[in-house]
Nucleic acid binder design. Structure first.
Lengths: 153, 153
DNA sequence: CCACAATACTTGTTTCAACAACTATGTAGA
DNA sequence: TCTACATAGTTGTTGAAACAAGTATTGTGG
């Protein structure tokens, strides 16, 4: 199924660039939908999972909040209340930095670490379900092209 | 710049699928950011533009609201108030369908049509700015792979 | 060392999206 | 024709994102 049938549009694309643009949007939507409902099963949002994932991958498992914001996929102008919710959920905690009292370090709690671990295998499964029909060569080429897109502007 | 440096992560990917997944998310963010600020310059949101674009491409320039919702890139469970805002902005209007009184047709007003037209050229320019550095072959391959992703699941 | 700028985060406010429940109209089978 | 169900859209409510302005701490040029 091509994009044209997919969205039931009458007129063709203005340009191949527009087609690619919408194609990225559609595919993003396709992938993110599954990811969203996946996260929901574990009681968190996509954005919240993103924070946990970043913390898990971080050196020493701790980062200043704005550093987390910087690494997020989406822009988060409101990192404070995003962290707030994770604190309330008992998944992360704040630890003021003694060296620089402006900074607040965020780290996973035991529960947070446990949740990320518990999500790992099912998540990998979902990725395989969503992308497993692409060959290694496909994936490599897709990654190359997506990275090339981001080099522009 | 690869994805790894891009997001400052320590640990490598769990799988090529996860890498591709995040790559789509990042690239989507990259593209949509520009698109968002573009739309903002014209006083509308991305979602609102999406409605206008769909109406412009629709046969006879009119569609029932739920049909619009169905064609949107993102899920819109709240099409009513999305249309509300466009009505208030004077860009679309509602026209009850006489044949089926459940249905309400949405159509562009003159102002709406004018706005879409006014946005067309700058938008094409932005697409070229964002994606112009990819060759035709790149774009074709990218489109092919993105469509292939959506065939899965 | 002192004013001033930069950094790191917080808070207030407004707007938008998500979810579910609800109304109104049309369709189809017993 | 009457009941049940499906479709189209609306509304109420809650929660989260967007934006801008504010506070506290640190770095820096004169």
């Amino acid at each position: 199924m091509g994009l044209k049938e997919d969205i039931g549009k009458q007129t063709p694309w203005e340009s191949p660039e527009e087609e690619a643009f919408l194609n990225v949007l559609r595919t993003h939507q396709f992938l993110t939908e599954g990811h969203q409902s996946f996260c929901k099963k574990f009681g968190i949002t996509e954005t919240q999972y993103n924070v946990l994932r970043i913390l898990k991958g971080a050196h020493k498992g701790t980062l200043p909040s704005l550093e987390i914001a910087r690494r997020m996929v989406t822009k988060v102008p409101d990192i404070t209340r995003l962290i707030d919710r994770l604190v309330v959920a008992g998944l992360v905690e704040r630890k003021p930095c003694p060296e620089d009292r402006r900074v607040i370090h965020i780290l996973l709690t035991t529960n947070g670490r446990r949740l990320v671990k518990r999500m790992a295998k099912p998540l990998a499964e979902m990725h395989r379900k969503q992308l497993g029909h692409l060959t290694r060569k496909d994936l490599k080429e897709l990654n190359r092209l997506l990275e090339k897109v981001r080099q522009g502007d």
